[in-house]
């Protein structure tokens, strides 16, 4: 095994991990505030991708406009789901909202299958995105580079929002203690809507990165990556922004190195390996890599 081979698989892992990271951030900020695992998150990603496909194939809009519209639609979808399926259950216990989110996920998957048929559809981005560049001997496609840049930008932007802005301060307050934040005059609904909006918009971007890489999309495409991104959020320490990013990269790299370096007879089982990693990390650090122990919130 040569070093360049190892590096190429590492790059694959970082690329996949970046996508997981972006999705995991959405899981994490929603969980941080609501203690809700939003299983419909992966399906919002699928909605975003289908919106892109429709806009590109039927109207022929330029890509930048397609991305903006799709992010906006996904944000609305996310906020709408929060309003219809989660907010009415706000006073119920956490399990009820969890089940509600599972139901929303199934609903969205079936809805997409009814509207677009369960068939896989080709998803073509301009050739420009698949062109490969040689950077210090590492082969990277334009899409890869954009993915890495996007993750960096998103992390920096979110750090700024969370640390420096009023809504970010309100988010931190809500995730510390929702009731106390409310007593301090913060409107939790505003904060929650903001969290869902950010998470859903990011999910649509992640969908673009996945679909651009795989060239096909189908109505169930968001589910497994969503599940792995959830693992990533847990591995990193759910509720923590940097934890979600770190978890995403760890899961992505672990998956790809397993697929690339292990004997080919076992590489087909890489999904199972991801969950083994999850269990191992939780055995050593029950709150995830960057999670804080908090003993549950009442």
């Amino acid at each position: 095994m040569s070093a360049s081979y190892f590096i190429s698989q590492l790059v694959n892992g970082l690329r996949l991990g970046s996508v997981y990271a972006i999705v995991a951030v959405g899981y994490s900020i929603v969980y941080g505030i609501l203690r809700l695992i939003n299983f419909a998150h992966g399906d919002i990603m699928t909605i975003g991708v289908y919106v892109m496909l429709m806009l590109m194939t039927t109207i022929g809009m330029p890509l930048w406009a397609v991305v903006i519209v799709s992010v906006v639609v996904s944000v609305f979808a996310g906020v709408l789901i929060e309003r219809l399926a989660y907010r009415p259950l706000r006073s119920a216990n956490e399990e009820a909202t969890l089940i509600s989110s599972l139901a929303v996920s199934t609903l969205l998957q079936n809805l997409l299958q009814m509207i677009f048929s369960p068939q896989k559809r080709a998803f073509h981005l301009p050739e420009f995105f698949s062109v490969r560049h040689d950077i210090f001997g590492i082969q990277l496609s334009t899409m890869n580079i954009m993915t890495f840049v996007a993750v960096a930008v998103i992390v920096i932007a979110l750090t700024f929002v969370v640390q420096k802005t009023k809504i970010g301060t309100a988010m931190r307050a809500c995730s510390e203690n929702l009731d106390a934040a409310r007593l301090m005059g913060i409107n939790p609904n505003k904060v929650i809507v903001f969290a869902f909006a950010v998470g859903s918009g990011l999910a649509a971007l992640a969908g673009l990165m996945l679909a651009g890489e795989y060239k096909t999309i189908d109505p169930l495409m968001g589910f497994v990556p969503g599940l792995k991104a959830f693992c990533a959020a847990v591995v990193g320490g759910i509720g923590s922004l940097y934890g979600a990013v770190l978890g995403g990269l760890v899961i992505g790299v672990a998956e790809m190195l397993f697929a690339g370096l292990m004997p080919t007879s076992v590489t087909a089982y890489r999904d199972a390996f991801v969950f083994v990693v999850l269990i191992l990390v939780l055995l050593v650090r029950p709150n995830g890599l960057l999670g804080q122990s908090e003993g549950g919130r009442s």
Binding site: N12, R15, L16, E213, M221, A259, T267
Partner: peptide
């Protein structure tokens, strides 16, 4: 159902 073949 795993559409990622980059490792292979």
């Amino acid at each position: 159902k795993d559409p990622d073949f980059s490792a292979q």
